[in-house]
Simulated assay, not measured.
Amino acid sequence: MGVNPMANAMMVIYPYRDRDMWVFDDEATGLVKEPFVFGVPEMIDAATATIPDAAQGFRLIFSAKPFPGYQHELLWVREEYEGNWYRWRSTGQEGWLCPALFKYFDAAPAAIYCRMEPSS
């Protein structure tokens, strides 16, 4: 399990709502309207409840290592259908991250640390 050696230690995406789904675009990886599915939307809803207008977009900073100011820790649970299940440590909620995860990591990290904040 590890970080892609070509990737930054800290990565940023800007999720937003499109047709009642949380999605994100990342020109550097070729992802457009990449959806979050299977438990992750509910996790995002809970984590962004205090971010004004989060549905219009918010900043999601993430890393395989803890960093100053991280808010959420997702722990690896298991692999399934080429994706990976993670458990949000503080709530116990689980969500599946699809193979797009490997655009950022060369293998599923043991933990993913996140910070969610307004995009502006």
Rank of each mutant, 00 (worst) to 15 (best):
I44H: 00
H72N: 05
F24H: 07
A108T: 10
E42D: 12
A49N: 01
D53M: 11
E34G: 02
K103G: 13
P52G: 12
A100V: 09
P68W: 00
D26R: 00
V77K: 12
G69M: 09
Q56N: 14
P5R: 07
I61F: 03
A7Q: 13
G2E: 11
G69R: 08
E117C: 04
E80Q: 13
A108P: 04
G30C: 08
L60M: 13
E79Q: 12
R19N: 15
M1S: 15
G83Q: 07
Y70E: 01
D18F: 12
L60S: 03
A64W: 02
K103R: 13
F102A: 06
A7S: 15
G57S: 09
E42I: 02
Y86F: 15
P109W: 08
A64S: 14
L60R: 01
R89L: 14
P35H: 06
Y104G: 07
S90Q: 13
A111Y: 00
M21W: 06
S90F: 02
A49M: 06
P99K: 14
E73I: 11
R59C: 14
L97R: 04
G95Q: 03
W85A: 10
M21C: 09
P118Q: 14
M21P: 00
P41H: 09
P109A: 15
D20F: 13
L101R: 01
L74Y: 09
F24L: 09
D18P: 00
W22E: 10
R87S: 14
D18W: 12
P5T: 11
V3D: 10
A49Y: 02
T91G: 11
L97N: 02
R78H: 09
K65H: 10
T91R: 08
F62W: 00
K65A: 13
D25H: 14
E80H: 10
T50P: 00
M116D: 04
P68I: 05
F36L: 02
D53E: 13
V12T: 15
V40S: 03
F58L: 06
A46S: 09
C114Y: 01
M43C: 05
A49K: 07
R115Q: 11
D106L: 02
G39T: 04
F36S: 04
A111T: 03
D106R: 14
K33G: 08
I112L: 05
W88I: 03
